[in-house]
């Protein structure tokens, strides 16, 4: 089985004047379909860099990134857009909903760029919103919602075009611990339904939600294994197992 996500000796360097920052330093790992992986590490360890590359928002400096067996580094901007639309569902720390659109239209944005018709977009968006428990707020604007609700909208949006990978970057970063927990439970539920989830966080207790941990330090992988392994360094929160 080809892995869904595969990093092969991947590097991303930034040149700042005469210093070279190795944000990703020879990273190799692969994620199979149906896995729930957390990428953890301290600030500046290279998590966002990895996330941008996984999310096809950026391309590696060297090495290869294969998504579903296809080399992303060789793709044109248009192809990257298509891949983002079809294969990836983003959940951002700041929700990143479009303030002028109602929830239905927000959730339907990926479907719009997928070229789906209006009727289909609305039907799918409504189904997704109902799934995250916001079926009664279809025509509200994002600013009429609490942070937790907004994050649920962004989960609905991430799911709307049935992506191969759900990519969550600090999804609980702006939420209190209780609503944060709700969001994590939702990610776990998605995983149980067979979705591939990649969670990016600096918080070990949040990373513990995942099945597998990839720990980054200074752009390098220092641990890659099951969350239950004591060397993963994430303490299990009993109720969440």
């Amino acid at each position: 089985m080809t892995p869904l996500i595969e990093f092969r000796d991947l590097c991303k360097t930034y040149v700042m004047g005469d210093t070279i920052v190795r944000a990703a330093d020879h990273i190799s790992f692969s994620v199979n379909e149906g896995e729930f992986v957390a990428i953890v590490g301290k600030s500046g360890s290279g998590k966002s860099t990895c996330m941008n590359i996984i999310g096809c928002l950026d391309v590696p400096t060297s090495g290869e990134y294969l998504l579903d067996g296809r080399n992303v580094g060789a793709m044109s901007k248009n192809e990257l857009s298509e891949i983002r639309n079809a294969k990836l569902g983003f959940i951002f720390q700041q929700y990143n909903l479009l303030p002028k659109l109602d929830l239905l239209d927000n959730v339907a944005v990926p479907l719009l760029y997928a070229g789906k018709g209006k009727r289909e977009r609305r039907a799918t968006a409504q189904k997704m919103l109902e799934r995250v428990g916001l079926g009664d707020k279809l025509h509200n604007r994002p600013n009429q919602l609490s942070g937790g609700q907004q994050q649920r909208v962004s989960i609905a949006r991430a799911l709307s075009n049935s992506p191969s990978v759900i990519l969550a970057d600090e999804p609980t970063g702006a939420l209190d611990s209780r609503t944060g927990r709700e969001v994590l439970e939702m990610l776990q539920a998605l995983h149980k339904e067979g979705n591939t989830v990649v969670l990016i966080t600096h918080d070990n207790s949040i990373a513990a939600t995942a099945q597998r941990i990839i720990r980054l330090e200074d752009g390098r992988v220092t641990f890659d294994g099951p969350a239950s392994d004591p060397k993963a360094g994430v303490e299990k929160a009993g109720a969440m197992a």
Binding site: L57, N78, E82, R84, L98, R157
Partner: peptide, 16 residues
């Protein structure tokens, strides 16, 4: 700018 970023992340092409 942010809206444009979001739309691009969600699959908008440059042409769109």
């Amino acid at each position: 700018t942010r809206e444009i970023g979001i739309r691009k992340a969600l699959g908008a092409k440059e042409s769109s």
